[in-house]
Design a protein around this nucleic acid. Structure first.
Lengths: 364, 364
DNA sequence: CTCGCGAATTGGAACGGTCCAACGCTCCTT
DNA sequence: AAGGAGCGTTGGACCGTTCCAATTCGCGAG
């Protein structure tokens, strides 16, 4: 009996060394007993050590299969002081782009034998319960924050202790925390210059809210200015829903504005800050009797599957989220190796996807 | 020194009982030392025991805050023999409906202080690595399978040991495993009877693949038959993409078929097995010069945000996925309490969402 | 003054693994 | 024949927590 009871004359009677195994899952010791070897040897087999004889290896393997033994990850990580798990903090599962990022993340992490543990920050906010803490308690080996976090409280503190990477967001900037984000300004410039290149001179922008909306708007304005044009109009499209895009586009394209402009002064092209609001603009154009792309050119952003629908077939900026995920994984792996390296900030260049929603303007 | 070194005269010199704390995160003992109490007392404070004096409680709390102590979940679950974690097996994050299910699941599980650990089965399939196994190693307290699993290998075995619930799928049926699914047949009947109620007599169906597609098809056929009609046509729409729906609809609505039917014999309504293929049909109708809903009525399925886009505005069956998630959580909690209860199978009734893609047929 | 007695606090075993030093073999060298 | 080297195998400490039995302490009763 390896684990001898120090107080042999325990009052409770014959607590013999063999455990009663009260219907618990089998342990490494159970396997060892069954195979007639020591638990150390079982451990070696589990880790695929080459210094085990074939005979014993097979005996152990047989015992494992018969008992349906599964190693206990908690016990393992307790002594190994690593969990081979990275925590992924999502802010909103509904957003389709994050799936791409996740996919990219996964491809690399999996290759390094790390599992991803995901949590939706939006879902999991109960009173005083923050996620950075939960992940710290689980002793994840790394942390990835995908998208905009509802509150950064606790994150800064977690990032001090756990290798952390921010993916798909420009904030927050923390001391030892890398950041990989989409280059929204660049993407917006791409879209705008595409329209300019087609010959458009009066280009409007349906702007979005938040930091992302702002960056895309800045990119739009920069592109317009650098070509000697003035932005025809920048309209807030609100919450980024189809409804918001629709209303904004109606304001933009509807009956002449109070300034006294005539019909011909309406914009001939619209750059929307995302695909959904772009679809709203498409609906508005249709209702107003404008043909897309003959009378009005449209460009969206995010290249979601909406843009790929034949019925819509939008030109859209593809922000290469998969690449964002892959680079974030790369950063995380590097940082796990050298936790105190200086923070790296990267931008991933997007690309324009051209379909059928833009064309040269009709000669006026 | 509580943990005395048995070999006091170790060759390595003065390995005193106090750990060197090689930059490890603080433990309960560190907190205890700092607060001048025993580790047991710290443990009691952590669990909010009422039998601790206020003075000590505050001292411990102060030490915890100063050191930034976080309890180690692995150590805790090792002795507690529970993890307060349920594993969620997803087959495809890209599918939007599953987010709803997750949301429903979460609402209940969170209330019972259980965290969800998600894994995407599609992503995580490397050689010989199955997820049911990973979750078993993590000793999750419960398992939820969301959607169609790529391979059921290992699941049956896992379900023997861990309370398991299948959500949003009709298979597999396992001994002690509950199942909560959408009533697809009912939903399809709802959609079909809606069209019949509008006066349509020639109704076609764009069928989908897999068990889900089959059930919806059965519902369609049953509804048609029970109203004394014959299904006008059932066309395989393939993979469930927009392209597939488009092609199928073109076959259905295009130039007269080889059977010699005339134009008027084309169906006046189409029930598509999901929204995406329904959009494909919409595209086809448009290209063929058919107005929706005047010349052709359409009904989709899933009530995704596609259906809600003003430009598309599809009638669609809402399969109440949130409710599926909530009921699955309920089942899981029950089963965690009584693991050997007989398996329960529930169907959640869907509801029809009416928008603008269906109308009475024009008189012929 | 001593003897319970309850409340507060503590020591140590246990949880299920990994890892390391030590052990018993066999075989080879000197 | 004695001494190593190398290989396969083993015992036991240890990881950070919980839980239980035991201990200490102050205090009122006998």
């Amino acid at each position: 009996m390896e684990r001898s009871n120090t107080r042999a004359e325990a009052p409770s009677g014959e607590r013999s060394g063999t455990r009663p195994a009260a219907d618990r899952p089998p342990t490494i010791r159970g396997v060892a007993a069954r195979a007639g070897v020591s638990k150390s040897l079982v451990s070696l087999v589990l880790q695929g050590s080459p210094r085990v004889s074939d005979a014993k290896r097979q005996a152990v393997q047989a015992a494992i299969d018969e008992l349906g033994y599964r190693p206990n990850a908690a016990a393992r990580s307790l002594v190994a002081r690593r969990t081979r798990t990275v925590g992924v903090l999502l802010n909103d599962m509904r957003n389709p782009w994050f799936v791409e990022v996740l996919d990219g993340l996964n491809s690399l992490l999996q290759a390094h034998d790390l599992r991803m543990l995901m949590a939706d920050g939006r879902l999991d906010r109960r009173a005083g319960h923050d996620f950075a803490r939960t992940f710290q308690e689980l002793r994840v080996d790394g942390l990835v924050v995908v998208g905009t976090l509802p509150d950064t409280t606790g994150l800064a503190e977690a990032a001090e202790r756990v290798p952390t990477v921010i993916a798909g967001n420009h904030e927050p900037r923390l001391p030892h925390t890398d950041l990989v984000a989409n280059d929204d300004e660049h993407g917006a410039r791409l879209a705008t210059e595409h329209l300019i290149g087609l010959g458009h001179r009066r280009i409007a922008h349906l702007a979005g809210q938040g930091p992302v909306g702002e960056r895309r708007r800045r990119g739009f304005e920069a592109a317009v200015r650098s070509h000697g044009l003035t932005a025809d109009a920048v309209v807030e499209s609100g919450d980024g829903t189809e409804e918001g895009g629709y209303r904004a586009a109606v304001r933009l394209l509807g009956p002449p504005r109070t300034t006294g402009r005539t019909r011909t002064e309406h914009p001939t092209a619209v750059f929307a800050f995302n695909d959904i609001s772009c679809v709203g603009a498409l609906s508005a154009a249709q209702e107003l009797g404008l043909d897309v792309p003959a009378d009005l050119s449209l460009v969206g952003y995010d290249n979601t599957y909406l843009a790929r629908i034949r019925h819509l077939w939008l030109n859209s900026v593809n922000n290469a989220s998969h690449e964002v995920g892959r680079r974030a994984a790369r950063c995380l792996l590097d940082r796990m190796a050298r936790p105190h390296a200086p923070a790296q900030h990267q931008l991933v260049a997007p690309a324009l996807e051209i379909r059928g929603s833009a064309a040269p303007p009709v000669a006026t």
